[in-house]
Every structure is written in structure tokens, then in C-alpha cells.
Amino acid sequence: MKHLLILLAWMLPHQADGTLFACKNAKVSLYSKAPLEDIRATSATAASVYKATTGEVAFNVPIRSFKFQKSLMQEHFNENYMESDKFPNATFKGKVQSLPDLTKDGTYAVKATGDLTVHGVTQNRTIDGAFTVKGGAVSFNSEFTVKCVDHKIDIPKLVFQKIAESISVSVTATYIKN
């Protein structure tokens, strides 16, 4: 909830001219395919806000909220790779280009350009996604790749066969109108 409040505070000064959508339980999944072991993790506590009239969008995921099949993987992820105490969140703040009409049912492919911050390193990215409107319900889905080196996430040579250099990220958010 705290993460949603932070995102809403970021968007509220701009709310007067449009409709704001919020999601406090977006699902973010990570997948690493490596020669010796595939690694999967999921968080269901990411927060997101979207302003339909301007296309402003923001996501915030607490790094420690990712759950792994093996507790040791989760421990290594937080302590050795992501340094979760030092960098507690991953964020995206940007703008959707070619705004979809969220008043009509359908699936709308979009691109969002903005700043992706992971492990304290911010990269300007354009991320593909899709809004789906069905019976007034609005959801968003996206899949993209994050390269560890781009965000200064070090993979020790000892475990390079267990962790991929690029991580697949999948995001799903179902919004409510605020």
C-alpha cells in the first residue's frame, strides 16, 4: 500500500485534467534461463498508476517481495545480486505513446518510454505492452528483458552457468478507476 501512495503522490499534481487508474497488486515475474538451472520468481505486490488522458504511467515493485521456489535462491537474490537493503525497489516512470481509448472494449498495443530503475541504475527504455478493456475492467500486460550488466548487477563467474545475463520480466496489472 505504501508503494501505491508514493505513486499516487507523484501523479496527483497532474490529476485535475484526467482519469487516474491504480493497481496495488500488480504481478511481476522474473525468469532466468541458464545452462544448469532455470530460475523463476514472482511478486504480487507491485503498485502502478496510469493517467489515461496524458499516458503517464508508473510502476514500483519492492525487490524483497519476489518469492522463489527455493529459499536459498531468494536469499542470494536479495543479498548478493540485488542488494535489496541498499536498493529496495525497482521502478518505471514514463509515458505511453498513442493513447488507447479505455472507454471501449478491446486490446490496444502500446509503447511506454521512460526511466527504468533497477539496482540503483536508471536506463531510458521503451517497453512494449498492451492494455485490455473488457466490460469496463482495464488491465495491462508487458514482457521485456533486463540485462544484468545494464544495471550493474554482478554475476560471479562461479555461478555464471546458473544465472542468465538477461532476465525476462513479465508484468500484469488490473486497474481500478480512482
Rank of each mutant, 00 (worst) to 15 (best):
75 E>F: 01
107 T>W: 07
23 C>F: 03
51 K>R: 06
64 R>K: 15
73 M>F: 13
66 F>Q: 02
125 R>S: 07
119 H>P: 01
96 V>L: 02
88 P>Y: 04
134 K>G: 00
4 L>E: 04
117 T>C: 12
120 G>F: 09
70 K>G: 02
126 T>Q: 12
113 T>D: 00
114 G>S: 08
166 S>Y: 05
62 P>R: 06
70 K>H: 08
133 V>S: 00
80 N>R: 13
73 M>T: 06
20 L>Q: 05
170 S>H: 13
98 S>I: 07
115 D>K: 14
172 T>R: 14
23 C>S: 14
138 V>R: 08
37 E>Q: 12
151 H>A: 06
2 K>M: 11
171 V>I: 12
93 K>F: 04
173 A>I: 06
31 Y>W: 12
64 R>G: 11
22 A>S: 08
90 A>F: 02
144 F>N: 07
163 I>N: 02
3 H>Q: 15
92 F>K: 07
25 N>D: 15
57 V>K: 05
24 K>L: 05
107 T>P: 06
72 L>K: 01
164 A>S: 15
170 S>E: 10
156 P>E: 10
155 I>K: 09
146 V>A: 13
116 L>D: 05
73 M>V: 00
90 A>H: 05
25 N>K: 15
25 N>T: 15
159 V>K: 11
56 E>L: 10
62 P>M: 01
22 A>Q: 07
172 T>F: 15
47 A>Y: 03
62 P>V: 00
91 T>R: 10
2 K>P: 11
122 T>P: 13
99 L>A: 03
61 V>K: 02
2 K>E: 14
9 A>V: 05
2 K>T: 10
92 F>E: 01
169 V>R: 10
31 Y>A: 13
83 E>Y: 12
16 A>C: 05
157 K>P: 07
104 K>V: 15
165 E>H: 14
8 L>D: 09
70 K>I: 14
147 K>L: 12
123 Q>F: 11
6 I>R: 14
171 V>S: 03
106 G>D: 11
154 D>W: 03
116 L>I: 07
131 F>P: 00
48 S>M: 15
35 P>K: 09
59 F>V: 02
46 A>D: 01
124 N>A: 13
144 F>M: 08
72 L>V: 10
27 K>G: 09
162 K>C: 13
78 N>F: 01
56 E>Q: 13
131 F>T: 01
148 C>R: 14
116 L>F: 10
90 A>K: 04
81 Y>S: 11
130 A>Q: 13
133 V>R: 04
79 E>H: 04
149 V>D: 07
17 D>R: 12
59 F>P: 06
